[in-house]
Design a protein around this nucleic acid. Structure first.
Lengths: 368, 368
DNA sequence: TTCGGTTATGAATCGGACC
DNA sequence: TGGTCCGATTCATAACCGA
C-alpha cells in the first residue's frame, strides 16, 4: 500500500482496500482528494412487506439494517449519506459514476440532483447477452443505467473526447454502450468454484469509464468495491485506486485478483489527445519569424475572400481589421471562425493552409 | 366524439381532445376508467446559451415556456399532481408509460415509486439518428428512457408477449428499442411549413407501446397530447384514445392529423424486415473486452511491419499513430488499407488475424 | 428521370485561458 | 472575478438542386 500526502493529514491510502462500512470509511478520508468515484451500490430493495399503509402513505424509514432496505425512505437515507461523503471527497474538477437498474437508479439520480451534482450524461449499458425473461411476463431486462455527474453546475470535469472517439471507430461516442456481461474466465470464483460475487461488472465497462473520464495518475475511489473490478482496471490503466468493502470474502478475492494485474506500459496508456491540449501559437509569430511577410495576401479556403497580413499579426480585409479569426468571422457573417483553418497563402502558385506553419512551429516547440 | 358510459356519471369523452390543463382536465374524469396512460411530460431541460453547430448554423433549441420550471421542487410538485390523477383514472389492471431524459426521468421514476406504482421495465429508446454533441464536451445523448409501470405491486397488467416477439423477428423483445427519431414526412408542419411541435415522438415508438401493452378497444389517455401521436397510432390500431392539450395550435394540428388516419386492416400491419448490413465493430472494443491487451504487438500479414495496441484502440507504429487502417496504410505507403485483414496477433506462437475477433463479436451481437 | 452533390436539422442541461 | 478573445467542434437522414 502506498499513501499519498495531501494538504495536511490524514493521508490517502492509495492502491489498497479499506475494510468496513463505506460511509464510515469515507468519513475518515480527506476533503477534495479523489478524481473519480465509481459506485455500484446495492439495490436489493426487499419491498415485499408493508411499504404503504392502506391510505397509501409511506411507512416510516427503517434505518437499522443497511443491507436490507425495507422501504424507499431507508434506501434514500443510505443513498444520501454515501453521496454526501463522496461529494466531499471529490476534487473540484472530479466526477462521479454510479450504476443501477430500474429498482434503484431513479432514486440515485434524483438524490444526485438534490445534492447539487450536475448530470453530464446518463449512459445505457446495453447487454449483448442478458438473461432472458423466462416467464414471458415482461420485456427482457437487457440493460443497466449509469449516471455520470460532475460536482456541480459549471464545475470542470475530465473528458477524453478523442480517446473515446478512437475507441468507437472514429465516430463520437454515444450514450448507449453495447458490452457483454461478465462471464467465463473473467468471472471471479471462490474456493468452491462458485461465482464469488453476484453482480460482478465487466472490465470492459470500467475500461471505457476510466479511459474516457480519468487520466493516468488520477485517484479513483470505489466505495462498493466487491471483487475489485474497478481496482483491477485502474491498476492496468495506471490510475491509483481506493476500494472500500465490508465483506472479508470479497476483499480476499479482490486482493488476489488485483495482485495478478500488470500495468500496461506507458506507450500503450497514451491515448489520442485533443487539439485543445496543444500549445497555443499566436499568428503574429509567423510574421515575426518571416514565415509570412507583412503585406502578403491570404485567401479564404472557399476562395471568396482576401486579406492582407500586417506587421503586428493582424489582418486587413476589405472593410475590417483584426485577428485572423475576427476577420474570417466577419467576412463569412458567422458567429465565429477558426482563422487557422480558414486562411491560405500562396507559395510557387500553390495554395497552402496557414495551419501548416503553425504545425511547423509546434514541432519546433516539441523539439526545443 | 364518442362518450362511453362508465359506472355512474361522468361520461368518458373518448376519441377527442380535451382543451386545458392536464391536471384539471383529469380531475373531471371518472375513477378507474382508462386502460393505459401514455405521458410525455415537459423535460425541464434548463438550457442556457445558444448553441451552434461546427458549420456555424444555429441549433433550434427547445426554449418553449411550457418546458421551464423554476426549481426541482416545482417540477416535483407538478409531477406529483399529474401522476396522482393518472393513477386514480387507471383501471385496476391498467398501466402507465412515461418518457423522459436524464433531466427529468429520475424524478419521474422516484415519484412513481413513491406513489405506489410498480415499475415493470424501464425501456431505452436508442435513437438511430440522434443529434451529435457538437462541442465534443460530453457523450452524444443518443437515447431517451421510458418507464412502464402497473398500478401497484401485484396488480394485473396487459402484456402481449407474442406480439412483441413477432415484432422482433421471433426473438423475445428486450428493454432497448432501436428506432429513428421523427423526421421527414412524418413530422407535422404548421401553416408556415415549420415543425408544428418541437418534440414530436415517432409513431413507431407508440406503435410498439400500444401493440405490446394494450388490446383493441382499450382506452388510452395521453395527458400531454401535443400534436397527437398517441391518438393517431391508437386510432390506427383500433384503440380508443383521449388527449389533453392546453395549446390550441397543437390541438388543431392533432385534430387534422388524426382525422386523416384510417384504422389498419390486418394486412397493413406489416413489419419491415429489411435485412441490416453486418454491424460495424470498432477495433477498440477488442481492447475493452480484453481480447487484445494494450501494449500487445500486432504483425502485418506480410510480416514486414509491427505496431503496438494502445488503450483507446489506436495503434502505435514506428513513426505513426492512428487507427488500424491508418497505420496499415501508412506503413504500406498505400492510400488506404483494411486493417481488419492486414493485422495479426500471436497466441501460443501462432499468428491469428484480428478479423477472427471481430467475427466473434458479431456472433455475440447476433445472439444478443 | 436519375444521379450525385449540397444543404438542412434533430428534447442539448455543449469553454476556457488569460489578463 | 469579470471581460476579452482565441479557436475547437457533428452524425444520420431527408430534402433540395443542378446536370
Amino acid at each position: 500500500m502506498t499513501t499519498v500526502k495531501t494538504r495536511g493529514a490524514p493521508t490517502l491510502p492509495v492502491n489498497s482496500i479499506i475494510a468496513g462500512d463505506c460511509i464510515e470509511a469515507m468519513r475518515a478520508l480527506p476533503d477534495a482528494s479523489v478524481d473519480l468515484v465509481f459506485a455500484d451500490p446495492p439495490y436489493n430493495l426487499q419491498l415485499r412487506g408493508a411499504l404503504h399503509r392502506p391510505d397509501n402513505s409511506l411507512v416510516d424509514a427503517v434505518d437499522d439494517a443497511w443491507d436490507a432496505f425495507d422501504s424507499f425512505a431507508a434506501y434514500d437515507a443510505f443513498t444520501r449519506a454515501w453521496l454526501t461523503e463522496a461529494r466531499r471527497l471529490l476534487k473540484p474538477g472530479g466526477a462521479l459514476w454510479v450504476i443501477g437498474s430500474y429498482h434503484n437508479v431513479f432514486r440515485l439520480g434524483a438524490e444526485l440532483q438534490n445534492q447539487g451534482f450536475w448530470i453530464l450524461n446518463d449512459v445505457v449499458w446495453r447487454k449483448s447477452n442478458p438473461m432472458p425473461n423466462f416467464r414471458g411476463k415482461r420485456l427482457a431486462n437487457a440493460h443497466e443505467t449509469l449516471i455520470w455527474a460532475s460536482r456541480g453546475q459549471g464545475a470542470k470535469y475530465t473528458f477524453n473526447y478523442d480517446a473515446l472517439k478512437a475507441l468507437n471507430e472514429g465516430v463520437q461516442m454515444r450514450s448507449d454502450w453495447v458490452l457483454p456481461i461478465c462471464t467465463g474466465g473473467e468471472r471471479e470464483k471462490d474456493e468452491s468454484g462458485q461465482k464469488a460475487h453476484p453482480t460482478q461488472k465487466p472490465e470492459s465497462l470500467l475500461h471505457r469509464v476510466l479511459v474516457g473520464t480519468t487520466n493516468p495518475g488520477d485517484v479513483v475511489l470505489d466505495p462498493f468495491f466487491g471483487t475489485g473490478t474497478t481496482g483491477a482496471v485502474a491498476k492496468a490503466l495506471g490510475r491509483d485506486w481506493i476500494g472500500i468493502e465490508r465483506d472479508a470474502g470479497y476483499r480476499q478475492v479482490a486482493e488476489r485478483r488485483i495482485a495478478k494485474v500488470r500495468r500496461y506500459d506507458a506507450e500503450a496508456l497514451r491515448v489520442s489527445t485533443s487539439k485543445r491540449a496543444e500549445p497555443r501559437v499566436a499568428f503574429g509569430v509567423l510574421v515575426e519569424r518571416g514565415m509570412l511577410r507583412p503585406g502578403e495576401e491570404l485567401l479564404s479556403t472557399n476562395g471568396r475572400h482576401r486579406a492582407k497580413v500586417r506587421a503586428d499579426g493582424t489582418l486587413a480585409g476589405p472593410d475590417v481589421t483584426g485577428s485572423i479569426h475576427q476577420v474570417g468571422a466577419h467576412l463569412e457573417g458567422a458567429p465565429s471562425c477558426n482563422g487557422w483553418t480558414y486562411w491560405q497563402f500562396k507559395r510557387d502558385g500553390v495554395c497552402v493552409p496557414i495551419d501548416l506553419l503553425r504545425q511547423q512551429i509546434r514541432a519546433e516547440m516539441q523539439a526545443g
